[in-house]
């Protein structure tokens, strides 16, 4: 069975070949990292998987199903959640509300049941709240629960965004630069969480990351990308000693 597979994935913006025939496969339970210099096409791959961009070519397979033509809002329900490089939280809402929106894919009940807040809606809300509280506990967010995102520091926002993705109960979690903008201590927390997410929650992780020490600590396999093409794929140490990768980073 195929857990996740990108097959000759490509997208061209006019003349720019942002992603140009990328193949890779992720095993269930793996922490898989994509590295590459700025503009290599890493975020674009995430946007393709989220179905925000339409691929020019290629296929996406998840859990043996072709998701290349799935509508973007159905991706979360299939079990793929993501975070964003520049944090896309719901700024005017509280942490709790943000996390509850993460439960959207699991909602039930009709519009009318919501409008009249029928007992069924109340029960469902309480059940969602239980799930959200588990994530709050896991990420130690309790003291920020009722704060609006707009009032939170950057580091906490990063964690909230991770929490929101976890609330969708994904099978595959996409993290776009989870450590960018974090200080050393926050980065090390993040590393523990990423490991725990895989080890305790059994969620596979696809991550884009620049911080090599974090990559080394958590990744099982690393894929190096440049100009939308795969340079190499292998264990963290293999990839870092690869000639082409070194040249790409030094700009040679």
């Amino acid at each position: 069975m195929t857990f996740f597979k990108a097959d000759k994935l490509a997208i061209h913006f006019g003349g720019v070949k942002a992603v140009d025939g990328v193949d890779f496969e992720i095993e269930e339970g793996e922490i898989f990292t994509i590295i590459g210099p700025n503009g290599a096409g890493k975020t674009t791959i995430f946007n393709l998987i989220s179905r925000i961009y339409e691929p020019t070519e290629g296929k996406l397979i998840f859990n043996d199903e072709d998701i290349t033509n799935t509508a973007p809002h159905l991706i979360a329900g299939r079990g793929i959640a993501r975070t964003f490089q520049n944090i896309e939280l719901f700024e005017q809402a509280t942490v709790l509300q943000n996390l509850l929106i993460g439960r959207h894919a699991h909602r039930s009940g009709t519009l009318l049941a919501n409008i009249f807040f029928l007992p069924s809606t109340r029960r469902a809300e309480l059940a969602h709240r239980e799930e959200v509280e588990k994530v709050i506990e896991f990420l130690d967010l309790a003291r920020y629960r009722d704060q609006r995102i707009a009032n939170l520091p950057y580091g906490v926002r990063k964690v909230v965004e991770l929490g929101r993705a976890l609330c969708t109960e994904p099978k595959l979690l996409l993290l776009d630069e989870p450590s960018s903008g974090l200080n050393v201590e926050e980065t090390s927390d993040m590393a523990f969480w990423i490991k725990d997410i895989r080890d305790l929650l059994g969620i596979s992780v696809l991550m884009v990351e620049h911080d090599m020490s974090l990559v080394n600590r958590v990744s099982d396999r690393v894929l190096a990308l440049n100009y939308g093409r795969v340079l190499t794929l292998g264990s963290p140490s293999e990839v870092q000693s690869n000639e082409e990768v070194i040249r790409a980073y030094l700009g040679g």
Binding site: S50, I52, A71, P72, H73, L74, I75, A76, G77, A81, R82, F84, E88, L89, F90, E91, Q92, A93, Q97, L100, I101, G102, R103, H104, A105, R107, G109, L111, N114, I115, F117, T121, E125, R164, T168
Partner: peptide, 24 residues
């Protein structure tokens, strides 16, 4: 206080992540 209104607020604050959370 129900999923519908939260989806509204999500769309207001960030359409792209609303969509990624499963909001049509």
């Amino acid at each position: 206080r129900s999923p519908t209104g939260r989806a509204f607020v999500a769309i207001r604050d960030s359409e792209i992540s609303a969509q990624s959370m499963g909001i049509h």
